[in-house]
Amino acid sequence: MAYNLLKGKRGIIFGALNDASIAWKVAERASEEGAQIVLTNTPVACRMGTIDELAKKTNATIIPADATSVDDLEKLFVQAQEVMGGKIDFVLHSVAMSVNMRKKRTYDDLDYGFLNKTLDISAISFHKMIQTAKKLDAINENGSILALSYVAAQRTFFGYNDMADAKSLLESIARSFGYIYGREKGVRVNTISQSPTFTTAGGGIKGFDGLYDFSDRMSPLGNASADECADYCVVMFSDLTKKVTMQNLYHDGGFSSMGMSLRGMTQYEKSFIDENRDENGKIIYG
């Protein structure tokens, strides 16, 4: 159901690759809510993905840009304003990649060249994007900037590797730039900490199936889907959240506040072999 929450607004969405992408879902929902949008991704991603299909569906313009290149970002913000006929009202940063994870390098055996790429693509690009937009005065007052994060920025998760460091930096950038941009232009900057979600990026995490199941069992509301995340992003782009800024907003079914759930404990207890139980079937600890 549409509520015209973004009627008359213009937005740029980074990172849509295929219909499994959260950015793809956000683009669909933003369009349904009345927004005019520009889609962007790296030139190679635009060629390899199915972004043309999304552009047709949402009546969007595609402007390829490498989010780590300031030159590309400058061209993107200038062209986006020309295409849409005015300043930008909202931006979604849904960009992340770890070469170390792809190469199966563990956290205690990182390639530092790969680490630099992880940080540049997954976090520093967010800073470059905001700084470029601010210098060009490309975003309207009371605009909204979002990036997608994960609870591994605060807690340790097996297999999440150097992406945890990148998400920590991403959230710090949102706070630091949120103060400056909010003070000067009323532009709000936030991150959304989403549940594990089956996307192209998520599939590269070691043991992702187990992580997804664990999170779902621990969360009282279960994992939040990509479609539900898109709904939340739309609310954050809208005028309903004008005073929300510098926040990391958990959208994870309650996972981030849990210690142990009944479903989690039940599954855990099932994992004990018979020799760890007494004659009455009770688990022997210790």
Rank of each mutant, 00 (worst) to 15 (best):
residue 81 Q to M: 13
residue 72 D to E: 11
residue 124 I to F: 10
residue 95 V to M: 06
residue 155 R to C: 02
residue 121 I to A: 03
residue 148 L to Q: 00
residue 177 F to E: 15
residue 156 T to A: 14
residue 104 K to R: 15
residue 70 V to W: 00
residue 127 H to E: 11
residue 101 M to Y: 00
residue 73 L to C: 08
residue 173 I to T: 09
residue 171 E to W: 08
residue 162 D to T: 04
residue 116 N to L: 09
residue 83 V to S: 06
residue 156 T to I: 10
residue 123 A to R: 00
residue 151 V to L: 13
residue 141 E to R: 14
residue 147 A to K: 05
residue 66 D to Q: 07
residue 69 S to H: 02
residue 79 Q to E: 14
residue 177 F to L: 15
residue 81 Q to C: 09
residue 163 M to Q: 10
residue 66 D to N: 14
residue 170 L to Y: 05
residue 140 N to E: 15
residue 143 G to S: 08
residue 122 S to I: 05
residue 168 S to K: 11
residue 97 M to Y: 13
residue 174 A to P: 10
residue 97 M to N: 12
residue 174 A to Y: 12
residue 123 A to T: 03
residue 118 T to R: 02
residue 125 S to C: 07
residue 153 A to I: 02
residue 147 A to Q: 03
residue 85 G to L: 03
residue 160 Y to F: 15
residue 110 L to F: 11
residue 173 I to D: 05
residue 101 M to K: 06
residue 149 S to K: 06
residue 153 A to T: 02
residue 141 E to S: 15
residue 180 I to V: 13
residue 167 K to Q: 08
residue 109 D to Y: 10
residue 144 S to C: 10
residue 129 M to Q: 12
residue 89 D to C: 05
residue 160 Y to H: 08
residue 100 N to K: 01
residue 143 G to L: 08
residue 91 V to E: 00
residue 101 M to H: 00
residue 77 F to T: 11
residue 81 Q to P: 04
residue 128 K to I: 01
residue 177 F to H: 13
residue 73 L to D: 08
residue 153 A to N: 04
residue 103 K to N: 13
residue 109 D to E: 15
residue 98 S to L: 03
residue 103 K to Q: 13
residue 120 D to W: 03
residue 148 L to T: 03
residue 129 M to C: 13
residue 72 D to H: 14
residue 125 S to Q: 04
residue 135 K to C: 03
residue 131 Q to P: 04
residue 101 M to L: 09
residue 145 I to W: 00
residue 118 T to Q: 05
residue 81 Q to W: 00
residue 118 T to M: 06
residue 138 A to P: 02
residue 112 Y to N: 08
residue 167 K to D: 01
residue 129 M to G: 07
residue 81 Q to N: 08
residue 128 K to C: 00
residue 169 L to V: 12
residue 132 T to Y: 02
residue 87 K to M: 06
residue 174 A to M: 11
residue 71 D to Q: 09
residue 171 E to L: 06
residue 156 T to C: 02
residue 113 G to T: 14
residue 71 D to A: 10
residue 77 F to P: 09
residue 161 N to W: 02
residue 72 D to K: 05
residue 67 A to N: 03
residue 70 V to G: 00
residue 173 I to V: 14
residue 87 K to N: 12
residue 125 S to L: 01
residue 93 H to P: 01
residue 119 L to F: 05
residue 144 S to Q: 12
residue 171 E to P: 06
residue 110 L to T: 10
residue 109 D to G: 06
residue 89 D to A: 07
residue 134 K to S: 13
residue 82 E to L: 08
residue 165 D to K: 01
residue 149 S to G: 12
residue 90 F to D: 09
residue 122 S to V: 02
residue 120 D to M: 14
residue 117 K to D: 14
residue 142 N to F: 11
residue 102 R to Q: 14
residue 107 Y to K: 04
residue 147 A to C: 07
residue 101 M to S: 13
residue 137 D to F: 00
residue 135 K to E: 15
residue 106 T to Y: 04
residue 118 T to C: 10
residue 141 E to D: 15
residue 144 S to Y: 02
residue 108 D to E: 13
residue 108 D to T: 12
residue 132 T to L: 01
residue 76 L to A: 11
residue 174 A to G: 12
residue 152 A to H: 02
residue 68 T to Q: 11
residue 158 F to K: 09
residue 73 L to Y: 06
residue 72 D to T: 11
residue 138 A to G: 03
residue 89 D to F: 04
residue 123 A to C: 04
residue 130 I to L: 12
residue 96 A to N: 05
residue 164 A to L: 01
residue 69 S to A: 06
residue 108 D to A: 07
residue 87 K to P: 03
residue 177 F to I: 05
residue 138 A to M: 04
